[in-house]
Design a protein around this nucleic acid. Structure first.
Ligand code: FES
Ligand code: FES
Lengths: 148, 148
DNA sequence: GCAAACAGTACAATTTTGGTCCTGTTTAGG
DNA sequence: CCTAAACAGGACCAAAATTGTACTGTTTGC
């Protein structure tokens, strides 16, 4: 179905909660409440985001998480990559050597182009923009698919 | 990893083989050979493509498959949809009612925007273009992600 | 020292995917 | 009319990924 995992979806939600928190350090607990998700789930996903350097964690009592960068400097692509690893539309065209047919596969290079176009599209939407659900400003970012 | 399934990848390969076949009716057998894939796999995927109306099948001896439309009129999006169903980046934002948090989810609408941008990107690459691996013409199709 | 809170890992249940196989049905040709 | 090639439609199973949870540390403020 060409989708990102549910956890990735939740990650964007939690990240927007952090944006709303305006730089405050929020515990996984309160983030779970605000996002209306289960604590273990939120906890898991925050660990991954922290590992990817998208959020900073503070340990100990009164600890919690906060954004590592300005919301305008964090893109949806960053979140997707943090949660799912490198963006690659096809298993073949990314991991070199994983497919027996690489040598005689005509679609490989074109999939790679499509791939980077989609990566660009995801990278063109910032977390700051994700938090403005109802806004009317329709800034549009041109993305180009260079076809063979 | 944000990827299409292997079967979808294979489908594009088989479709390009059909393009190379220049309108000839090719059996699943010969397509499997040309694509260097297993017959049962190719057979399965051709059934799905036929069901979606992307290829036409002829039964009986000397039967086989051929493209239903001109290669320039078939897009990568068509193939992806045929193999994986409607394109939806997040499970939530597509199937309405599947998520408990729809009412208070701020990212939903933005995911839908990203979603349609990606669908457009996939729809902007035709099967005809997929068959030209080494060509230098870099026609670029502008895709716009309308952000909130 | 204690309790709150993150870190890291492990785990089972479920779902999806990948791949195969089998039983029809259609059709050209002998 | 009879056979063999070839598609149609499922059924099926094994492997992998996803989902969600749990447990055991470690850090830190009070
Ligand atoms: S590289 Fe694997 S099928 Fe094209
Ligand atoms: S609609 Fe399900 S989390 Fe946003």
């Amino acid at each position: 179905m060409l989708r990102v995992s549910k956890l990735t979806d939740y990650a964007t939600v939690v990240m927007t909660c952090l944006v709303d928190g305006a730089g405050e350090v929020l515990s996984a607990q309160v983030l779970a409440e605000r996002a209306r998700l289960e604590l273990p789930t939120v906890s898991k996903l925050l660990k991954q985001l922290a590992h990817a350097g998208l959020v900073l964690s503070t340990r100990g009592i009164n600890g919690g998480y906060r954004l590592a960068r300005d919301p305008a400097q964090i893109t949806v692509a960053d979140i997707v990559v943090a949660m799912e690893g490198p963006i690659g539309m096809t298993e073949c065209s990314t991991r070199s050597g994983s497919c027996d047919h690489e040598s005689h596969c005509g679609v490989r290079v074109n999939w790679q182009r499509i791939n980077s176009a989609i990566a660009d599209a995801l990278a063109s939407v910032t977390l700051a923009e994700m938090t403005k659900p109802a806004a009317r400003r329709t800034g549009s970012i041109p993305v180009r698919v260079a076809v063979a």
